[in-house]
Amino acid sequence: MSMVSTDDNRILVRKPTAAPSTEPAAPTFTVDGPIEGRRVGFRTDSAWRSWSLIADVWNGYLQRDGATTDTYETHGMIGDTGATDRAQIDKLAETVDFAIVGLGTCGSCTSFTIADSVAFEDHEKPVIAIVTEEFATHGHNVANHLGHGDLKVLVLPYPLEALPHEELLQIADDFYPKALELLGVTK
């Protein structure tokens, strides 16, 4: 339906959308060596019990393979808790050799998983962000929007919450080698 002919009835307006960023993606880093003797940072999130369990399993495997691990559990995005979390993540990024950061399995927690992963890349450390399948595209988008479009993202099945304990342990086993491969760990 058209109320008037549009062929010669045009007006000029201003485009309402912002131009996309053209900044190149920040560099990423890989371990390029064995696990033994490395210090590994884990970022968990008090919101996600499934990820804490998987991270615990991976923690054990890394220690078995000769690494030392430091885990920091985040509790907030803002306020004193958020400020403490960001400061601790930054400190972790300074002290570890590489890091595993999760979990992105909601909108805002994926955004903060990616933002905290970026903190490790800013310290030129290898890092992988852990997100679930439903939030994988969102994770890549946020990484891209934060200027780290090449950030390595490991995608776990979705949903993880409310899965039986045994299934979560199986997922931890299945995805541990993939995590190491993505980080660039070699034998």
């Binding site: 058209s2 109320m3 009835n9 045009r10 007006i11 000029l12 307006v13 201003r14 485009k15």
Partner: peptide, 25 residues
């Protein structure tokens, strides 16, 4: 002095509405 890209759109309100939907504005 405006800097944002200038574009030509239909003057007809209904057609402009349809264009805005198409462009997701």
């Amino acid at each position: 002095v405006l800097q944002q890209e200038q574009i030509e759109v239909p003057a007809d309100p209904y057609d402009f509405y349809e264009l805005s939907l198409e462009e997701q504005w």
